[in-house]
Design a protein around this nucleic acid. Structure first.
Lengths: 202, 202, 202, 202
DNA sequence: GGATAAGCGAGACGGTACGTCTCGTCTTTTG
DNA sequence: CAAAAGACGAGACGTACCGTCTCGCTTATCC
């Protein structure tokens, strides 16, 4: 009768309470599975039951922690969002910007990240994700702001520029090229963009 | 307000396909209802049954013409997309661009247009709308191209510029500001963008 | 089949619910399956899904007509209750009573009827069946009343007897023997009961 | 909430289950809560979790002792059944019967007892309570038997009467009146029943 | 009196069933 | 004949409850 479908190879090393306790493990598995599901099927094709199966977990277990689809998707995405967040401080504005933009582009280019970024743009169109966008971009904006603030302190950037505006000018074309024109973004394009922005400082 | 779909005042005289025939009227009603539904509930909250009710039509009637949700949404949006498409030719590049961008912004700012534009960006994330984006932007791109081509012919714009790139640079910041930063777009911002682009021509 | 063109009991006069229509067929199948389920598993083991399977019908279809378990059980039982309801009038009180009691015992002895009768006794203990009991016994009581009324008219039964009381005295021992002592009821026992009651008339 | 250590009235004789021990207290609380739950919600509405809450005890604790719902319900009921069991011996059959019947009616009239008696009649319809009925009535039957046996010995009752039959004739009408006709039982009705039975002895 | 065993609280999990909802198909009725 | 009306199959959704399990802690019991 003792059937253990989930071989916990961790329990062999330390059966006691650990960072990788069952709860934490389940959470990680489900979140990972949710991301896969999102990538494979898109949001509208996202099925809770399939996530449970992918995660090797019972469906009720998923609902216990994430009562609705939106919450699971949001949680899975936000978990992802917290990665890739180094705040560059190389002393050179161009280099800093290159790092910031590259990080976003890298995220955006990955299958999961693509959905994350897309969801962050759904604020106006998908009621249930009204807050994902602001949550997501707030952090990015503040990183950009820090970079520019330091540049202003160094005298490498004029103080009177609206930071949000610059952010939109830097990022907008990348977004448009990627999501709208359906073309990939390479380093050269990022450089080109930065170069153009830098001309505003003159 | 009082619209009784059962009053077939024209079907008796001309039951066949006419501009104002029942078929055409039903199509218009459903498409209009679909757009309303999309605006009110978003794509993932879009319900066929509710569209039928809104249109004062039986659900089966909707399915007869648009077998799936995606087709109805696509059809309703594309119907909308065909409006607002004047190709400006004022002889002045800046003015032409201002008109082109204004049209897009105007569309984007309307509740229905917002969804249309958003859908057009879903190419990479919503499998069933893979083709909506290209379909939608192809026309806009060609309009932009024509404007620039004429400017090139007039010597008002360098010939070697990648037209798609310029398109992304013009539109991207608007998209980012609107969908990402969640801020409205005014005429001044459009002007600013155009001014900045024009500096590339120098 | 009928020769008389005026008697079109269902085909023409009632085109809405033809006896052989899909709806009617489904209803009959489900009700039959529900009764089987009740017999096999008892009320607390009664599963909607299993009823659907038994009926060869999708679960949703069951819920469409009977939103809750109680309604389905009630409906299935009441459908059954409407059978076995001849009102005897032989001119002899004893014979009439024998027929009435036999009918109840016959119902009670069948696997489905047992549950029906049991449910009809659940008024005080199963909140959701509060009304099944009264509904069920009202008819039986009135039949008994008619039998006794006719006997009174014939001078074969005193007028001053409480009819409900007599009903309880006739039926009670049968119920007790069957449900409480867990013994079967035969004709002889019924006769004995009637004989005993008749002594009250002397 | 702490136990008074001086009340050890049974600790010497029965150290295993001290009256004031935690175990015994928990058992009593849960059983009491179970009875309340049964009264309030009926068997089919009986929820283990709610019993735990009522008892101020964790759900696991309930399951530890009563692995299934049926066991808890049965246990709670049977606990109750052991009360109200004096065996009358007044020397007068009528009086003895009056006491026996009154006890059953008293039990039946109480909210908890009503369920107990009802369950005892579920032998044929609720598989999991197949044995509750026999268990419950066996004791009552034997008490009745003793009463009649004594009467036979006194020559106050004929020897050839089937005791079970008499039991059914005595109790049946009460059961029918109470559970079926949904009317209360008073002392007068009991007296009337006994009177009628006594006529059989003549 | 300290070790040991038994029981409890807390909380997650697998699993079954419930009842709701939507999608897209199909049949029956009506104009 | 085509549209309206309405049921149906399919299946996801989210909730509720049942019964099991593990872990940490507090009692009781025994040496």
């Amino acid at each position: 009768m003792s059937e253990d479908p989930h071989i916990d190879d961790e329990s062999a090393t330390q059966p006691k309470k650990r960072t990788g306790g069952r709860s934490a493990r389940v959470r990680a598995q489900v979140l990972k599975a949710a991301l896969e599901e999102l990538v494979d099927c898109g949001y509208s094709g996202f099925k809770m039951g399939r996530v449970a199966t992918r995660a090797g977990v019972h469906e009720t277990t998923v609902y216990r922690r994430w009562p609705t689809k939106e919450q699971l998707v949001t949680d899975a995405c936000m978990d992802l969002a917290d990665e890739h967040l180094p705040v560059p401080d190389t002393g050179d504005l161009e280099t800093d910007l290159r790092i910031v933009l590259s990080n976003i582009v890298k995220l955006m280019s990955s299958p999961e990240g693509r959905h994350l970024v897309f969801l962050s743009m759904s604020t106006r169109t998908i009621p249930e994700f009204e807050e994902v966008g602001p949550d997501f971009w707030r952090t990015r904006l503040s990183i950009g702001q820090q970079v520019f603030d330091r540049a202003v302190a160094r005298g490498a950037w004029p103080a009177n520029y609206d930071k949000e505006l610059v952010f939109a000018e830097l990022l907008g074309p990348l977004i448009a090229t990627y999501f709208l024109l359906n073309k990939e973004i390479d380093e050269a394009y990022i450089d080109e963009r930065i170069l153009q922005i830098m001309r505003l400082a003159d």
